[in-house]
Amino acid sequence: MQSRDTTAAGIDVLGLEKSYGEQRALRGVGFSAASGELLAVIGPNGAGKTTLLSIIAGTLEADSGEVRLGVGRVGFVPQQPALYRKLTVAENLRLFARLEGVADVSAAVDEMLAQTVLGERRDDQVGTLSGGNQQRVNIAIGLLSKPAVLLLDEPSTGLDPRQRARLWEFVLELAGGGTTVIFTTHNIAEAERYGNRLLVLADGEALYDGSPEGLHAAEGAGQTDFEAAFVSFLRERGH
């Protein structure tokens, strides 16, 4: 269930519950994210990360709980590029801009092409682009409606280091502009480096909500790197 609360920050998520048959995917998960905040949702496979993002995005119905949006809309970038491979970059952008009800479609398309630095590839079919460029178009489509909250489901999966660096540079710019970014990732180092805050999920339960430094500190001085601290954190809690 989504509602608007203009007094709140970017987004408030309250007590989300979701089950698939006997399996509980989310167990009362809740958090808040402020405008311009970068929230990394991490956890082992099957933790409920994608389910959480799908509910916030509105593509999945929660069994109970609530999602409260501040001003603006939610933009969703699924893990797999949701693009028409036979259409060109510009045609994809134009189509979704029209479906989003964007007032000036041409201006929005040009802006996204400039932001993604894909202007030279605007007339290329998406199927001919590299995985990294496809992901950029994928994100650009999620940004067409200028969302206040952007959801990225494992956005760097399949990208090489150079493409990942470009992607995060782009995302950081968005956050710098005031967009609340919530992203899931399996790359713990990426979460630590780019996330202002971490939300650790395991078996549908929120185990930690705070800064990366806080999680590292909680695991003591024995852990030399963040990934080891994260694994230790999960192990101590039976995951």
Partner: peptide, 13 residues
């Protein structure tokens, strides 16, 4: 197959 369905039905259509 193009993963577009989820994006489309998320309020667009």
């Amino acid at each position: 197959e193009e993963n577009a369905f989820r994006r489309l039905v998320r309020g667009l259509v």
